[in-house]
Nucleic acid binder design. Structure first.
Lengths: 227, 227
DNA sequence: TAAAAAAAGTTGCTAAAGCAACAGAATTTA
DNA sequence: TAAATTCTGTTGCTTTAGCAACTTTTTTTA
């Protein structure tokens, strides 16, 4: 029964994914940078602010190298890590459509290289230029890559309780590689900010998960012992 | 200081929104239905399943009339209301990109009329047909309308504590109309499922909010007394 | 490489949220 | 319109998570 369900799931997954054309973000970025004068590439050092969403509207950014956080500080001063970007990820207000007056910051987690351009550009651009065509055709795929991340995050935050949040996140990380061992992409302090939970309570729960033989942990290397 | 911040915010908001072309979903739906044989319109009675995401991949649906819920049941059997669609909203797996084996259901909250078509369709379609062009041009706007909803939800779920979740949600509802009075779009039972909190605990918190003179409540009519 | 800063790991106490189990009101269905 | 069902409102008890305040370890930086 379990096996049939899994096979069915895999079948749909494969079919679904085959139907989706593969979109190469690096080719797209190269195309953009060489064909259009309205794009720019900038470099950032660790901890610098790459962009903010309230002020920089309609902006589309592609992370060419490095890692970055999308961060908000809530009314009580708590840091919330909303999203975590790695090389080839797309971000910018064009994909967030901010509607509150609480600013969102993109912070360089490591040294970064970022390509900037504007969503509104497709309107202003000469209709015969090849860039225009590329942009319009690629936009859905760019946005979809963000939509997947957003839905993943909603799924995480929908979990009741710290244990469920941790296990859900761990199984997402585990599913991205072969085997049940993976490396946490950020510090435990940041993990708590990402899951919107108290760090001390999280540590306590991780301890329990180890005691219950559900996970093994060596630094940032974690192994899921159950399925 | 407060006033300056608000004025600045409003200014950016207006500028941002002016730059965004207005997209009429009803015209789009009409265009689609009349120009393409691959689309279909179906009617549903209250509580019927409109579609599921795991099986119906790459599907795009437009709610022509009525209201619907996007629902998941978690591992403990809890009902989670992931999203709430009203007339003109766009949904379907094409916008969710399901990646777990937990099925998502779209349920008719009232009688509904829904337009169905496929995201993959743009690939198969004859390149000269006007529908193809319309679809490709409109897709980003269709998706953006979902992205806004997703981000709103993440903002809600990022709140620590029931009181914060309630107040955030209430202020979103209040901001959608003039004045501070609004009507809850669903029952209190469903509201708890939407905010992923215990209903009894939520009722207790609502009572406290009334006692603290932060809200007034008459049935589903709520007034925010503070800003 | 020594000092400083950040992250990891702990703990006791307190506050908040979940659960169960009701009763009464409102709504739906037969 | 009567019966059934769902929704609202409430409460006591229990479990969970948050907070504050530490120590120890690891990583940065001067």
């Amino acid at each position: 029964m379990q096996t049939v369900a899994l096979a069915t799931f895999l079948c749909y997954t494969l079919l679904g994914d085959l139907m989706r054309k593969s979109f190469n973000i690096q080719d797209f970025a190269k195309d953009l940078a060489t064909h259009c004068s309205q794009t720019q590439i900038r470099k950032f050092k660790k901890d610098e602010v790459i962009t903010t969403y309230l002020i920089n509207r309609n902006q589309i950014c592609i992370l060419l190298s490095g890692e970055a956080y999308l961060v908000r500080y809530d009314s009580k001063g708590f840091k919330n890590i909303i999203d975590c970007f790695k090389t080839d990820d797309v971000f910018g207000e064009a994909f967030y459509r901010i509607h509150t007056n609480r600013e969102l910051f993109v912070l360089a987690k490591t040294d970064c290289e970022v390509l900037f351009f504007s969503y509104a550009m497709q309107e202003l651009c000469d209709k015969n230029c090849s860039f225009h065509e590329t942009l319009v055709k690629s936009l859905p795929d760019l946005i979809f890559s963000r939509v997947i991340a957003l839905n993943t995050r909603i799924e995480l935050l929908s979990k009741r309780g710290i244990r469920d949040k941790l296990l859900s996140y761990f199984s997402i990380l585990a599913s991205q590689r072969i085997g049940n061992t993976f490396e946490l992409p950020f510090s435990l302090t940041d993990l708590a900010d990402y899951l919107i939970i108290d760090r001390a309570a999280m540590m306590r729960e991780i301890k329990k998960l180890k005691e219950d033989k559900i996970i093994e942990k060596n630094g940032k290397k974690i192994t899921l012992l159950c399925k």
